[in-house]
Design a protein around this nucleic acid. Structure first.
Lengths: 330, 330
DNA sequence: TTGTAGGCGTTATCAC
DNA sequence: GTGATAACGCCTACAA
């Protein structure tokens, strides 16, 4: 290590320019010289310094990612998708997690700018004016995931959470639910919290059900909060269907219903969100809304790289969802 | 954007050197000038180019990570731990996943070298001479996670999988198991596959049980493979205890036992590995071996950064485990 | 076909 | 206290 292009040049008895030409396959090089250089490269294991190269080309081939939390399997899958796809195009990723702190998010934007990354994928759960201002100051391509935010400067990719929750609710009602309730995520979480909640309300409105008569508890996406929320609801209401804003809460709710001697789905139907790996094997197996985060990640990487390389990219991309019916619904 | 330190200098009527001094807090600067510079920095949102800086200082403040797969919650937690801890020391991470391909792993080592990262955390499931040769060629500090590989050049961090499996087996036996069996991971996976398997055998040996009489199936860590392995075992044997090399396989096994009308833990005791979030709420709740990957990640980051900054670091660090007894054992 | 020289943006050194 | 200058390692005109 510590070798630079001049050292290689000296060893191969040529100039640094020639070495550079061999490495990059640019310009013509005498075959004999080329072979000598290649041999030295091989022997020394020399790798050009990406810093120097980036400085010159103004390109790093690195994409910055900001996600709230890697413990959430959805985000882990999303990141995996990005990474796998990016590597195909010879890009790497710098990963940061914000823990849902807007302050962290903003400071990462600045960091990414400093590091001269080629593009940024940002997935937050809230999106403020401050975020927007920061993004506007950046002239690197940015892809925002999971936030509807009309802005022609950035690419946005969204899950239609509202429609998904709407449809899930409709299905429960169509299967005979008369006393439905919901366990939501935190409502400040625009996507998985608020939008799923509002889709639920929309479906009720269409059926002429007043939201005031419907029990709604706000959980925090953990199994425990699902359990507690269900318990709170059962204290004061009789219900025959539950929509939970994610599978963990749905599983917590099922556990609670079980403890209260309710039969699923005969007495109470349950529907979750996410289709985590356990949902299929759980007893009863869980009906849920499946969103393919891995593919969303791949798509995000592809779109962003397209934008980095100067191609036109549509501004708002919608990720499909799919409703999976299993044993916890009739 | 596109501003450089010279632009700032011009705007503030000072030299680039002075701007640099203000930014880095190095050397003395006249208060009046400092204020003028700060104002320009504020107004322009200028950030120094980390590439140029890195070129000069030979430092990037970035750590490279290689893990097999982010879908595995253990690795996701591990990475999260690294990232959170690294950020405290002002380091960022470049994350790559190898999909267990040794070829990928090696090429990432080279990439990291090219990018002049300050350190590398490598977690693979196999560790070959080729890996070792590559690491030896690198003079960046490397931390290898999950592989016992005596080498004074690198820091290694390990889970004592063998002892953990040994102890788990002993517990099952002490609780009256007479006809025990195991569902292992792939045995080429040194850590979670082979080592857990060998710990199991060691415990049997100590009790004078011949391994030939004991059913052993090799799964692939998925729920399905746990189910199938259990089914295969039950076809030919009667068992009263199962050790599975991870919780997913344990849950698959439980599901199978349930389908075969076996009572848990009365007829068959089950013990897993990992303590995934669902294990506690499953019915029956799952006894398991818990390893704190998040903290292992934090510790890895801390040790590696220490090494990067020139401090001496112990060479082999052992991560503790803990056996959690729940409803699936007597 | 090949080599020399200048510059990418920053910081450290050395005069002033 | 401040500014010019060289250097980090590479690539690319341009000249030979």
């Amino acid at each position: 290590m510590g070798l630079n292009i001049k050292d290689i040049a000296r060893m191969a008895n040529v100039s640094p320019a020639t070495v550079s030409r061999v490495i990059n396959g640019t310009g013509n090089v005498n075959e004999e010289n080329r072979q000598r250089v290649l041999k030295v490269l091989e022997e020394t294991g020399y790798k050009p310094n990406a810093l120097a190269r980036g400085l010159l080309r103004n390109r790093t081939n690195v994409i910055g990612i900001i996600v709230p939390d890697l413990s959430n399997i959805n985000f882990a899958e999303y990141v995996k998708g990005i990474e796998n796809e990016a590597k195909k195009y010879d890009y790497n990723i710098i990963l940061t997690t914000s823990g849902n702190s807007a302050e962290n998010e903003i400071s990462y934007f600045q960091l990414f700018k400093e590091k001269r990354l080629d593009g940024i994928i940002f997935s937050g759960t809230i999106f403020t004016k401050k975020h927007k201002r920061e993004i506007d100051k950046t002239d690197i391509p940015v892809l925002v995931f999971g936030q509807n935010f009309g802005d022609n400067k950035l690419i946005s990719m969204n899950i239609d959470n509202q429609s998904a929750a709407y449809e899930a609710t409709k299905i429960l009602l169509s299967k005979g639910a008369k006393k439905i309730c919901m366990i939501t995520g935190p409502l400040w979480d625009r996507a998985a919290g608020y939008d799923r909640y509002s889709g639920f309300l929309k479906a009720l409105a269409e059926e002429g059900i007043s939201p005031n008569s419907v029990p709604i508890e706000e959980g925090d996406f953990t199994i425990n909060s699902g359990y507690k929320s269900m318990k709170n609801i059962l204290k004061r209401y009789e219900v025959d269907a539950v929509l939970a804003a994610n599978d963990y809460m749905a599983l917590g709710a099922i556990r609670c219903l079980f403890d209260e001697n309710k039969k699923i789905p005969e007495d109470v139907q349950v529907m979750g969100f996410d289709d985590i790996v356990i949902s299929d094997i759980y007893n009863p197996s869980l009906s849920t809304v499946r969103i393919d985060f891995y593919n969303a990640g791949k798509l995000s990487a592809r779109k962003l790289i397209k934008a980095i390389e100067g191609e036109k990219v549509e501004e708002n991309i919608i990720i499909p969802y799919e409703i999976v019916l299993r044993g916890s619904t009739k």
